[in-house]
Amino acid sequence: MLWIKTLHILFVTSWFAGLFYLPRIYVNLAQVHDASTKTCLIGMARRLYRFMLPLAILALIFGLWLFLGYGIGMGSGWMHAKLTAVILLIIYHLACGRMLKKFEHDTNTHSHRFYRWFNEIPVILLLIVIALVVAKPF
């Protein structure tokens, strides 16, 4: 089971790298007016998003494996809260995909300030998840 935990941590960390970086690309996209730079940034965002999806799936698969294998936190409040945060991260990931489509179709209506704030959401959710897993407060 320690190998499963190792792989879960690896894929969660890799997925989060994308969740931190993709909205940063959106900040730049919301500020740029040059067509060639926009094309380059959209290409970067598209490739990153495509790479993030299998990482997210693998993180979820190994997390589920741990949950079922260890029975960690079944019936515990902290696990329910953690799973809620994971669902919010999945929604955030999907929202990033929708935003990418808007940039691809040149229909983005948000400013770079919006994306700067949007970029903080996974940091807060990661802090919550880590605190819940380590402290198991309830």
Rank of each mutant, 00 (worst) to 15 (best):
A81W: 05
F114N: 07
A45Q: 03
M79E: 07
L22V: 14
L68D: 05
G71T: 06
D106F: 08
C96R: 01
A35M: 10
R98I: 02
C40Q: 14
G43A: 13
L64S: 09
Y21I: 13
L127H: 00
H8T: 07
C40Y: 14
S76G: 00
P54R: 09
I9F: 13
G75I: 10
H105M: 08
R98T: 04
L2G: 07
T84C: 09
K101D: 08
L58P: 02
L10D: 01
Y115D: 03
A59I: 02
R113T: 13
R24F: 05
V129A: 14
A17G: 15
I25Q: 03
A35Q: 14
K101G: 03
H8W: 04
L100A: 06
V27T: 13
F103Q: 10
V134G: 03
K101R: 14
D106P: 02
G75Y: 07
F67A: 13
F103I: 10
L68G: 09
R50F: 06
C40F: 13
I42L: 05
P122V: 04
R98W: 04
F67R: 11
P122H: 06
M79P: 02
A30T: 05
A59T: 06
M44H: 11
F62W: 06
V123I: 12
I91G: 12
V12H: 02
G75R: 08
H33P: 00
W117Q: 07
G69A: 11
F114Y: 15
F51E: 01
L60N: 08
K38N: 08
T13P: 00
L2A: 09
Y21V: 04
G77P: 01
F138N: 09
G43L: 11
H80P: 00
A35P: 14
A30V: 01
K82D: 03
H112E: 13
S111M: 06
